[in-house]
Every structure is written in structure tokens, then in C-alpha cells.
Design a protein around this nucleic acid. Structure first.
Lengths: 240, 240
DNA sequence: GAAATAGTGTCTTTTAGACAATATCAC
DNA sequence: GTGATATTGTCTAAAAGACACTATTTC
């Protein structure tokens, strides 16, 4: 029966990386930090929240991923799922063959209460995703992970209610339509969009709640958490 | 700069598991083997093709996954993609916290030429997936991996041409329809099914090739490998 | 009332769905 | 011709798409 120190020269490093999205000021942002000047690899580089998977600390990868987020406990993360697993020597070229398991998470603004539980001097920041992808060098394979996560977000916006998670608990159909248009990079027809939403059970009308402005107030809705189907229900088989 | 033997007590075992599907005699089968009687864990259990990820042997996980298949080199695997990564002590309860990266592959019958390059005495077999899921205890978390892979196969059959890979290089629309019906567990309308296929560029007519029988011969088609879209092209945005 | 945005209605085109009709082979 | 299965056509209902129209608020 082998133990932890058998095969010690054969095991890769295992790490987790998390891409957390939020929606603010009309753009999609993600949380990054600047690596310490004294880091032995990628000093001063921008990096996604990450951690070494340490079996003396973590019971499983999800736990490690949430640990990497360093959010206060009990914070609500309305969307959290595994993304992709990367591997090879290219991830950490100066050290060791690495396996990187990535996660995608969504959080809405009001819920964010961060606590840095270690390494207090690093700078946490929420930066625009498009800006990071186009203009910033990132540590390890984090650019690759970010692109993969952003693509998944955009593609899920086509056929699931994922965008709702970026909008918080209550939102108008107009807000959902605008955000969806950003994600799918296309214009949507008002009437059609509303029809589809009404015919699915995706959203629940919040009785008496309105978003007010210098115009007719907009009915607010919340995501029906019982709704597990697609936003666009048609595929090969019949709807529902 | 740390080396392989630093953190030796902190790293999990990393392994890969592959679910390979083929279609034969009207049912979906997957390749399994029976573990050796002398194995220190799960002796005599049925297992999916798997291997320990050893950084002194493998450059990356895909390489390890293909190694686990033990197929002769240069064999054509028309579909191969990463599935899901599992982790925790439950995978290998008597040993060490384990990270398991799973893959899903499809192969068509004529291409299968196996060579057992090690452990010559184990029994390789192709068994029916439904039978394995419902009636067989499997080693490690392999039942969970198999179910996940089978669900992905069935769900991809709804909106991608994945089923074509199970049918070989040439097949009739009838054959594709029948297999798809098995995978989605629903009947399809003949006329509609043909319309959709014709309107997408999913299949290419193979000039002059027919499947003959005691009836009107069926035109044979092959998968258009340039076609990367969905089988059912509609979603939120316009077709194409 | 004017401005602004929310929400609905109407008409045309496209796709879905059910099922009937025709085509082409072996025998 | 008969049997069998491949392939196409027809008709109705539903959904998509484009865009005009009405509604409700603030000022």
C-alpha cells in the first residue's frame, strides 16, 4: 500500500485557478491581483486568484478554488462551476510539470465583501476582461484560462439564464436584454426577447417591485431557481 | 526555486480515466478491463482504461489519456475531448487524496486494433454501457465517470453531429436517425430530420455510394469535418 | 404637454410537426 | 408485381423577425 512519499518524483504540481466575473458600469470585470515583487516566478505579473492544491489542507478541488477567492465565508456565489483542466510544463516553465484545474464563478456586486487572509500586501483589483485579454501579460497560463472562461460565459448566455447571475437578485427585462446583447455581441428584438422569457418559466415577476426613472417604471424580475432548462428550449426534441 | 521533491507530502495522486464509446449491434459499448487479482486496491473489479499521471513519462494529460487506451499508434480517434475533473479521498479511499481527469472518446469499429503493451494477462472487453451502469460495480470512481461521459454523449447528440463519429466514415440518414433516437430516447420525424440535415452543411453526400438492401438503396453520407456548428443551429441569434 | 423608456400588437417569413405520397431497389 | 424501405411533398400550427404602436412615468 503506497503512501504520500512514494512516487514523490513522479507527481505534478496541482493548482486551481478561478475566474470570477461581475458586471459593473456596463462592462464585465474579473478579479485579479498583482504578484509579489519577490515571487520566484512571474514577479509583478497580474494573476487570477489561484492556489496550490495541498492535500494536507484541502479535501477537494472545489474547496481549494473557493479558498483561492479569499471571500468572507458565507458569501453567496450564485454561479460556480468547473471549467477546464490544463497540464504541461508550459504552465510553470521554470519549475515543474503542472496540472491546473480552472473554475468559473459569478458574483453580484452587492455581495462582495473581501477579506485578505494572507499575503496582505498584494493588490486586489477588479479589471475589465476585454482590457486584460487585449493588453495585459498574465502569470502562468492565466490568459488562456481567462479566455476560456470568458468564452464559456458568452456561449452560455446564448442558451441559459447565466446572465441573470451578473445582474443581482432583481432586474428588469431591459437590463437583461442589454447585458445579453453585450455577451452575444448582437442586437435582440425587444418583442421576441420578451415573448421567449414569458413563455419559459425562467423569470419570476416580483410583485409590486419597479425600477423607476424619468419614464414608465420597469417591472422587476428575479431568476426562477427551479428553472433548470435552456433559455431557448428548442433543440432536436420538442420544447419541454 | 522548488524541485519535484519539495512538497512531496502535499501533492495528490493524479490519474486519468478514459471512456471510449463504440456502436455495435444496436447498442453503445465502452471499453473496460478486469483489474488483477493481486491489485492492492479494487482487485478483480471492472475498470475503465486509466493510468497514473507520471511526470517522468507523460508531457501532458492528453498524452497520458491516449496512453491509457493502449491502442496501436496512429489509430484514428475521431472524437476525443476532456470531460470532467474529480477530486477527493473517496476516489482511492485506502490510499491518498486523488485528482482524476476524465476524457471521452469515440472510435468506430473498423479502426480498432488493440495492443496490450503491459500487463498482458488482464482481460479487455467492450461491454454495453447501460449494462455496466445498472449492474456492475466498478473500481475507484469509474461508475461516476462513465455516467458523466454517457450523459455528455447523449446531450451532445441533441445539438451536435457527435453521433456521426459512432457510425464510421459512411452512413445513411436512416442510420443516423436511428442512432440519434437511441441517444436522445425519443422518436424523430423523418421529413424534419432530413430537412435539418440538408439545410445545415453537416453532411456531405458521397457521390454514387449507396447502402443496398431489399429495397430502394440509401444514399451514403460522410461528416463534413469543416462543419463546426450545431446540429440545430438556432439559439438566441440567427441561424449561421 | 414633452421627453423618455416600458411594454404590446401586427404582419410576413420561416420552421416545426404530422402524415401522406411517391421512388427504387430485390425478389 | 410485391414487399420493403428510402425519399419527397403537403398542409397546418407555431415561432421568428421586423417594426409600428400604445402605456406610464418624470419633468
Amino acid at each position: 500500500m503506497y503512501k504520500t512519499d512514494d512516487f514523490k518524483n513522479n507527481r505534478p504540481n496541482v493548482g486551481v485557478t478561478v475566474v470570477v466575473f461581475k458586471y459593473e458600469e456596463g462592462v464585465i470585470k474579473t478579479k485579479v491581483y498583482k504578484r509579489n515583487e519577490q515571487s520566484e516566478v512571474f514577479p509583478n505579473f497580474i494573476a487570477l486568484p489561484n492556489t496550490f492544491y495541498d492535500i494536507t489542507i484541502h479535501n477537494n478541488l472545489e474547496e481549494a478554488a473557493k479558498h483561492a477567492l479569499r471571500f468572507k465565508t458565507n458569501i453567496d456565489i450564485p454561479f460556480f462551476e468547473q471549467l477546464e483542466t490544463f497540464s504541461g510544463s508550459y504552465i510553470d516553465p521554470d519549475r515543474i510539470n503542472t496540472v491546473n484545474i480552472s473554475y468559473i464563478a459569478i458574483i453580484n456586486e452587492s455581495d462582495i465583501t473581501e477579506v485578505t487572509i494572507e499575503n496582505k500586501n498584494f493588490e486586489d483589483n477588479w479589471l475589465e476582461v476585454e482590457y486584460l485579454i487585449n493588453n495585459v501579460d498574465m502569470a502562468f497560463n492565466h490568459k488562456e484560462v481567462l479566455i476560456s472562461a470568458y468564452n464559456r460565459l458568452k456561449s452560455k448566455a446564448e442558451y441559459t439564464p447565466i446572465a441573470c447571475h451578473l445582474l443581482g437578485n432583481f432586474f428588469s427585462i431591459k437590463e437583461l436584454k442589454e447585458l445579453t446583447e453585450i455577451l452575444i455581441n448582437d442586437k435582440l428584438d425587444n418583442s421576441r426577447f420578451r415573448d421567449r422569457i414569458k413563455k419559459s418559466d425562467m423569470l419570476l415577476e416580483v410583485e409590486g417591485a419597479y425600477k423607476k426613472g424619468a419614464n414608465r417604471p420597469a417591472q422587476l424580475y428575479s431568476l426562477n431557481h427551479l428553472y433548470s432548462g435552456f433559455f431557448y428550449p428548442k433543440s432536436l426534441t420538442k420544447p419541454n
